[in-house]
Structures are given as structure tokens and as C-alpha cells.
């Protein structure tokens, strides 16, 4: 936990449009997402939570995709145009500087490998989850 630092906030929020959180501290938060998109609501819940956390000036240390959660990272999804594009959401958060990581072992089981990833998402090992958690004040798990 640390006192608010403008440069960190700008890095995370990107748009300078930050609402102050009540306590004036920046929480470092790791998000663990365990379910695939669309089948469960967890990817949507995680996304809305992250948007609110950024808006309130907190820092998302990383988003780790595990179990079927790795399927969130595939560029091969092509939902109907009037529906949300969940992989693009993660890609956009990645473009804003948030580390979005799909687990390599869980990914290999499910066909999620480098060649199918959306931009700004990377594949790495569970060690990344360990170091995210160690660096964070909070771990918030979304799954089913």
C-alpha cells in the first residue's frame, strides 16, 4: 500500500480521469479469473470491478487467467456485433498498461498459445501469479 502518486495513477488510468477514493491510498490489487467468457458471468464481473478500481485510483498489479479463464485471451472469438467482445476488453486493459497474463500450463491444455492471443495479453507461468500476489495488498478471485 502506498500514498497516492500521480505518475503511477497516470500510468494505470491512462486518461487522467480519476475519482478520488475515500482513504487516499492506492491499493495494489491482483485479479484472478478462473472461468471462460460468456459461459459464466465471472469475466464480466471482473471487468466491471477493474474499471471501478482504476476509476478510484487503485493499481491493478495484474490479471491472471487460470482454469478455463485462459479462454478469455483468444483472438479467435467472434461474438455477435451487438454483444460485448470480451477478449477485446482484456486487450484494451492491456493497452492501458495492465499486465494480463494467461497461464501457460492451463493454456496449453485448452489451445491457448501465443499464436492465438489478442494483443497486449501474454502467456506465462504460475510463478507470475505468485509474484503478483506477493506484490499486492489484495487478491480478488472471480470464478464459479
Amino acid at each position: 500500500m502506498q500514498v497516492k502518486n500521480a505518475s503511477i495513477l497516470n500510468l494505470v488510468a491512462g486518461n487522467g480521469n480519476i475519482l478520488r477514493n475515500q482513504s487516499g491510498v492506492v491499493m495494489k490489487i491482483t485479479i484472478l479469473l478462473l472461468e471462460s467468457p460468456y459461459n459464466h458471468q465471472s469475466a464480466d464481473s471482473a471487468y466491471h470491478f477493474i474499471q471501478a478500481a482504476i476509476r478510484k485510483g487503485h493499481e491493478i498489479t495484474g490479471v491472471f487467467l487460470y482454469n478455463d479463464g485462459v479462454i478469455n485471451a483468444t483472438a479467435l472469438m467472434d461474438p455477435p456485433q451487438d454483444d460485448r467482445h470480451i477478449a477485446s476488453r482484456w486487450s484494451e486493459l492491456g493497452a492501458r498498461g495492465i499486465d494480463i497474463v494467461a497461464c501457460i500450463a492451463a493454456g496449453k491444455r485448452r489451445g491457448i498459445i501465443d499464436s492465438v492471443l489478442v494483443p497486449n495479453v501474454r502467456i506465462s507461468g504460475l510463478g507470475q501469479l505468485a509474484s503478483m500476489i506477493r506484490k499486492s495488498d489484495r487478491l480478488v478471485t472471480f470464478g464459479d
Binding site: 487460470y66 504460475l126 510463478g127 505468485a130 500476489i133
Partner: peptide
Amino acid sequence: FKLMITVRKAPHGSIYVQEAIEVMFIMASF
């Protein structure tokens, strides 16, 4: 740093326990 891993799902009907054990091994190396 105190980390707890909770396992609350039945084995075999889903992969959660199997993949939770994989997480345990990695976390233990930190």
C-alpha cells in the same frame, strides 16, 4: 507473506482440484 489456498470442490467431476494442486507446488517454491 501468508497465503491460503482453499479447495472446496469435489475431485474428478471438474478440473479445479487438479489445477489447484499445480498452483500449490508453484506457490510452495516462493
